[in-house]
């Protein structure tokens, strides 16, 4: 090749310029390194976003699974009582029917949403307790103190129901007098809920015994997902009074 363009001249290759070669090598390495790291960072960010999304989805799925459910027998027993009331006191029966339909609306529609108004939740508790009262014997003393929230706060629906159901599940006896007290107060953005009941053993093969407290565990998990660091739940037997007590404080701000 050299012969073809420079006939007669001997082939004297230029001396290699080593620093140039080194520089070029470095350039290669740097550009490859740079592009790889850019691609890696991009991928990492994408993965992170995906992981966040999956985590959110998982929590949502878990929350929808944890959603409080009302015991269906409550409806059938209440309907049976209303049926009975129609022959005794029509106006009372009508009143109970309205309460029941308001409750059903709440259970069917509000409970599908992630949040509801605190005032609606309080109304729901009130209706539930009123209808429950209809089913109780004279031996059970039910004390209810519910404060109407002045301004409307946002809360997850049916958060308190499992605690209420529990009161009636454990706190009623056919032989002895018993007391169940429920109170709900609002101060600023904070809700204070309290439920207390006497404790009686549940007959081992009653239908309720087989439901073994899943409601409470679910509610605790639900609270920790929905209001992490924003709620305080204390439950257990009070040694002095011998009653079971639930104290729940949630900051809804």
């Amino acid at each position: 090749m050299h012969e073809l363009f420079n006939p007669g001249k001997p082939y004297l290759p230029n001396k290699r310029w080593v620093p140039g070669d080194v520089f070029q090598m470095l350039l290669y390495v740097i550009s490859i390194g740079l592009s790889t790291s850019v691609a890696l960072v991009e991928k990492w960010q994408k993965d992170e976003a995906l992981r966040g999304e999956l985590e959110r989805q998982r929590i949502n799925t878990e929350l929808s699974y944890l959603k409080a459910q009302i015991n269906p027998h409550f409806f059938f027993n209440t309907l049976n009582n209303i049926y009975s009331l129609t022959t005794l006191d029509v106006s009372k029966a009508q009143e109970a029917l309205l309460k029941l339909s308001r409750m059903m609306r709440y259970v069917l529609y509000e409970n599908q949403k992630d949040t509801t108004l605190l005032s609606k939740e309080v109304k729901f508790i009130e209706d539930y307790l009123e209808l429950m009262k209809m089913r109780l014997s004279q031996k059970v003393h039910l004390l209810v103190k519910l404060e109407e929230p002045k301004e409307d706060l946002i809360i997850a629906p049916m958060l308190f129901l499992p605690f209420l159901e529990n009161c009636f599940k454990h706190g009623v006896s056919s032989q002895q007098e018993s007391e169940i007290s429920i109170s709900l107060e609002v101060m600023g953005d904070t809700v204070f809920f309290e439920a207390k009941n006497s404790i009686f053993p549940i007959p081992p093969d009653s239908p309720e015994a087989l439901e073994n407290g899943i409601g409470l565990v679910n509610t605790q998990r639900r609270l920790s997902l929905l209001y992490p660091e924003k709620h305080r739940l204390k439950l257990g037997k009070d040694e002095n009074s011998g009653q079971y007590g639930v104290h729940l404080t949630i900051n809804l701000a």
Binding site: N80, S84, T87, L88, L136, S137, V172, S174
Partner: peptide, 12 residues
Amino acid sequence: DDEPLALDLLSK
């Protein structure tokens, strides 16, 4: 029946 109204209906 432990529920007064339900017992009423049943008796009736």
